[in-house]
């Protein structure tokens, strides 16, 4: 059986989360049950206005493995077109793509750090870890945004039972400031506990998180973005430089990398 399914699917649910944020659920999706946190889909818009597919992290998959959810922000032509689609519309997706986050040991305190539209894979990781029996009080969910409208799915995250740390730059919701502040606080308050960090978000945030990892000697992984013509490794268009020299294909070698591996 082929590893990657190139398939037509239907939008079965569309939710407007706030401002320019949307959630779309697709069904049926073969291979959805094989998606793991960190992986993404590549979505072909039903329009000749765009050439390439668009990449979106898997935000959740249903228990029966038939449905797959993405959460996205409208930023340009493709995402504007996507936001214009409705329930019942057909799209073509490639799934599952990319590597995955390392699953932590159950005794480790897990620090999930999502910045802006980087939170969906963190949410997927949190629910998978819980399903695998990771203690909820050992999962810290940090979520940073500009203001209250950027902190999405608050009820859903709270319901997971993890330790939720919302942060906004303007202080309109949760703690005021940058997401790395509570992260550093939790790290320095922890006593002799093993920790592991996972982050997805804007580049400056990823750099700051990596710096914390180095400062406190905590291992971790980041999920990065790059423009992706093909999404499955054949075009070499999505590369990022590696600290050790050479380039890495983000679509197949990534998008998840251990701290310190890629040049951001």
């Amino acid at each position: 059986m082929s590893k990657i399914a190139c398939q037509d699917t239907l939008i079965t649910k569309k939710r407007h989360l706030s401002q320019d944020y949307f959630s779309l659920t697709f069904s049926p999706v073969s291979r959805a049950n094989r998606c793991v946190p960190g992986q993404f889909i590549h979505l072909l818009l039903p329009s000749t206005d765009v050439t390439f597919r668009r990449a979106f992290s898997v935000a959740s998959v249903s228990e029966d493995g038939n449905e797959l959810e993405i959460i996205f922000r409208v930023v340009g032509r493709g995402t504007t077109l996507l936001a214009g689609l409705a329930k019942g519309d057909r799209v073509n997706i490639l799934v599952p793509l990319g590597n995955r986050f390392t699953i932590p040991r159950k005794n480790e305190r897990v620090l999930l750090i999502g910045g802006g539209i980087g939170f969906p894979p963190m949410m997927f990781l949190a629910s998978r870890l819980l399903a695998k029996g990771h203690p909820a009080d050992k999962i810290e969910f940090f979520y940073g945004g500009r203001s209250k409208d950027d902190i999405l799915e608050r009820t859903r995250i709270k319901k997971l039972g993890v330790r939720f740390h919302p942060v906004t730059e303007d202080g309109s919701f949760g703690e005021k400031g940058l997401v790395t502040q509570p992260v550093e606080r939790v790290i320095s308050e922890a006593t002799g506990e093993k920790m592991r960090m996972y982050a997805c978000g804007p580049e400056p945030m990823l750099k700051a998180v990596e710096a914390l990892g180095v400062k406190y000697g905590i291992p971790g992984e980041i999920s990065v973005e790059a423009p992706m013509p093909c999404g499955f490794g054949v075009c070499l268009g999505c590369v990022l430089p590696l600290k050790a020299g050479g380039y890495t294909r983000v679509c197949t070698d990534g998008p998840v990398y251990p701290f310190g591996e890629v040049v951001l």
Binding site: T51, P227, C238
Partner: peptide, 23 residues
Amino acid sequence: RLGHPPPRTAETASGMLNAIGLA
């Protein structure tokens, strides 16, 4: 060959540009 530094591709009307650099 390592190829050119990114960005290596761009979308255009009904097509794309690439400068992978024979990686």
